[in-house]
C-alpha cells in the first residue's frame, strides 16, 4: 500500500481531516481499509460498481472532473448518490465552473474548483437556470417540468 495522501478541510466541516486513497489502493486493500474510515478517489475510468458493496465503510468519495470532456463522473455521481444512496459526501475535485450545474444535479455534494476559476462568480454557474426538464439526483431549487 502506498502512502495515503491527506487532504484537509475540503469543504465540509464534518470532514476536516480524512485520509484519502486511490481507487486502486482501495481495491487491493479492501479488508484493511474498510476498517479505517478513509475516503477513496475515483478516476473517470475506474469501475465504480466495484465499491458498491463497501459504501458503508467509506467516509467520503472523491470524483475527478479534471478532463472537461469526460462525462463519466456524472454517471458515477448518480450511481453513488441516487441509486446506491451513499450518505457521505461525494466531492468533485478539479471541477470546472461551467460544469457545476451538471455536477450538482448528478449527485456531487461539494466541490473543489480548479485554481483557474478563482475570482469568478460561482453562483452564476451553479444556479444558472430556473427550471429542469428531467429527474436527477438533485433538483432542489429548480422548477420541475417533467
Amino acid at each position: 500500500m502506498g502512502e495515503a495522501c491527506q487532504i484537509e478541510s475540503i469543504l465540509n466541516k464534518d470532514y476536516e481531516s480524512v485520509d484519502l486513497v486511490s481507487f486502486q489502493e482501495w481495491i487491493e486493500n479492501i479488508e484493511k481499509l474498510s476498517k479505517l474510515s478513509v475516503g477513496v478517489i475515483i478516476a473517470p475510468s475506474d469501475d465504480v460498481f466495484l465499491i458498491k458493496d463497501y459504501l458503508d465503510s467509506l467516509e467520503l468519495i472523491v470524483l475527478d472532473f479534471n478532463n472537461f470532456d469526460d462525462g463519466r463522473g456524472y454517471s458515477q455521481a448518480y450511481l453513488l448518490r441516487k441509486r446506491w444512496q451513499f450518505l457521505g459526501e461525494v466531492i468533485g475535485i478539479n471541477a470546472h465552473l461551467d460544469q457545476l450545474q451538471f455536477m450538482i444535479r448528478s449527485g456531487v455534494t461539494s466541490y473543489v474548483l480548479l485554481d483557474s476559476y478563482i475570482g469568478l462568480n460561482e453562483e452564476d454557474y451553479a444556479n444558472g437556470f430556473s427550471i429542469c426538464y428531467q429527474e436527477a439526483a438533485n433538483n432542489s431549487g429548480l422548477q420541475q417540468k417533467y
Partner: peptide, 14 residues
C-alpha cells in the same frame, strides 16, 4: 427533447 435538454448526467457523452 425536454428530457435530454441539458440532462445533467448525459451532457458530456463520448
Amino acid at each position: 427533447r425536454r428530457w435530454f435538454n441539458l440532462h445533467p448526467e448525459f451532457s458530456w457523452l463520448p
